[in-house]
Amino acid sequence: MDKLFNSGVLTAERIETVIPPRDLWKTKKNGLVIIECPQRIPCNPCYESCPTGAILPFEDINDTPVVDYTKCIGCGRCVAKCPGLACFVADLTWGAENEALMKLPYEMLPKPEPGDEVVCLDRIGSEVSQGKVINITEPWEDSTMVVHVVVPKDRVMDIRNIKVVKNNAR
């Protein structure tokens, strides 16, 4: 298990610590952020990018981020700003009972388009499910996209990436 974590994959007990409070999460429109940043490194752009102060000020720049979920509005600005691409938003209120909306960082080609069916991947790049892209934003206009994907609700703690499969790829 440690070997997996040591290669950059968040594992069981650590996953528990990044899950937003369930009651709040279930009802929070636009979703809440999940930050998978378990290592103390000198970095604070998530805090700097947060418009509501949900990411609490850093006493030491090496601190790992602490979120006040009551303030988080699921805007995804930190998703696009984090240099480690470690922030993800999951909106459990979106769509049908078994659906959720995820806002995932994306810096690869090909770029997805609204309406695209994509493959949802977990923390080691294995296929989890299909997903449907409904929106793509670029909050900082710096080429880091935030892809809004509809995913199965029970897989929000597994899905961390998408694979865009274009049939008419060049």
Binding site: E107, M108, L109, K111, S143, R170
Partner: peptide
Amino acid sequence: SIKLIKDHPI
């Protein structure tokens, strides 16, 4: 042909 990177996300 010359091997160039034609498209790049950044």
